Simulated scan of single mutants.
Amino acid sequence: MDKHKVIEAYRRGLITLQECGQILGAEKTQLDDLMRVDHSRQPLGSNPYLIVDQL
């Protein structure tokens, strides 16, 4: 899954920061850096929803 989509899902409140980290395989400090860098990106297209399958 594209890391930007995962981060966008976190920002929209669809997943927690912990879930975001698990999906990306990142630790909290790495997530903080990703959130800071990725903040300048534009939102994902016109579809505001991301569908995530529950395991």
Rank of each mutant, 00 (worst) to 15 (best):
K5C: 11
M1V: 11
Y10A: 10
K28S: 07
I7T: 00
L55H: 12
D32R: 11
D38G: 04
D38I: 00
L55S: 13
G45Q: 03
M35D: 06
Y10F: 15
L34N: 05
H4C: 03
G45T: 08
V37I: 13
I23G: 03
T29L: 06
A9L: 10
A26F: 06
E19I: 06
T29H: 06
I51K: 08
L31K: 02
M1D: 13
Y10V: 07
Q30L: 00
Q42M: 12
R41F: 13
Q30A: 08
H4S: 03
H39T: 10
P43V: 02
A9Y: 03
Q18C: 05
D2C: 03
I15Y: 05
K28Q: 13
L50W: 12
D53I: 02
Y49H: 11
Y49E: 11
V52A: 11
G21N: 06
H4N: 10
Q42H: 11
V52Q: 12
E8K: 09
E19M: 01
Q22E: 15
L31D: 01
Q18H: 12
L44C: 07
K3G: 02
K5G: 14
Q30I: 07
Q42W: 09
E19W: 03
G13F: 05
T16Q: 01
M1E: 13
L34F: 12
T29K: 06
A26M: 03
Y49V: 06
D38C: 10
D32I: 01
L34Y: 13
D38K: 00
G13N: 10
Q54C: 12
G25W: 03
V37F: 09
V37C: 08
I23S: 05
K28H: 10
R41G: 05
P48L: 05
K28G: 00
A9N: 08
Y49P: 01
C20W: 07
L17N: 11
H4F: 13
P48N: 02
P43T: 00
E8T: 14
L34D: 05
Q30M: 04
E27C: 04
M1T: 15
I23E: 05
I7C: 08
G25L: 02
Y10W: 14
T29D: 09
